[in-house]
Simulated assay, not measured.
Amino acid sequence: MTALQLKLVATDTAAGSFSGLAAVFNEVDRQNDSIRPGAFAATLAKWAARGYGIPLLRQHDQTLPIGSIYAAKETPDGLLVQGRIATSTAAGAEAHALALAGALSMSIGYTTPPGSTRVIDGVRYLSAVDLHEVSAVSVPAAAGAKFTEIKSAADCRTIREYEALVRDALGLSSRTAKAVASKTYSLVNPRDGGDPQRDVAPETLTKALAMLAASNPHSR
């Protein structure tokens, strides 16, 4: 059985939904590997047929899932992914906090099909990979891959968007998320039209939401 290869890349993660490059093309990483355009075509077709659900792990630990990737595609720059961190779990909440502090990176775990590698001057060029997972990691290897768009409470333009974020982040029913959102939306989007209260620490807001959710016996 071929050992799983782990590729580390850099990011600035935040909570909930996110998008960004999980791998970049034509960049030689610290392990002297370079992924070529088109390398993900076959593996993404397989994941698409399964309905995606690519595991999002912490430090490539298969026993520590923190969310999932629900969409992925190749762009001229590399592998663009969209996913969601399960911030209602302990591991996800910790990853979220570290990501907000800029302490995490993205990484991919994969194997290479036979005949898909070519070594030139010590650099291994990969024309195809079998993607197994994406991870949030501590040490980057390729600086070009990063999270580019993260959905946080302060980014929600409407209370409906905020309800969806609360629902996904805390694992609530739609009904309970609506009730929690109605009590807390003004914290991040004042109704007087002022700027969102970005000085409210995300971890503080998350704890407040969790307390509100826990106070409702029908929250889950």
Rank of each mutant, 00 (worst) to 15 (best):
P217L: 13
I120L: 15
E27P: 02
N32I: 02
G38C: 10
A128I: 05
S219N: 15
W47S: 13
A181R: 01
T75K: 01
R118F: 12
E149V: 02
S174Q: 06
K183N: 12
A169Q: 09
S219W: 13
L209M: 14
P55R: 04
N32D: 15
A201F: 11
I108C: 12
A48C: 11
A91M: 01
N216C: 09
F18I: 08
Y185I: 05
V9N: 10
S174R: 11
T111G: 07
A201K: 14
V129A: 09
T158M: 04
G144N: 04
L172T: 12
Q59N: 09
P190T: 03
F25D: 10
K73H: 09
T75S: 13
L79G: 05
G115Y: 04
K207I: 01
T13H: 12
G83W: 03
F147K: 05
Q197G: 10
G102Y: 00
R124S: 08
A164S: 06
P217Q: 10
L79Q: 04
P65E: 07
E163N: 13
R198P: 00
L44S: 08
A95S: 15
A97Y: 06
G144V: 06
S135P: 05
R30S: 13
A3N: 04
K151G: 03
D168H: 00
Q5G: 08
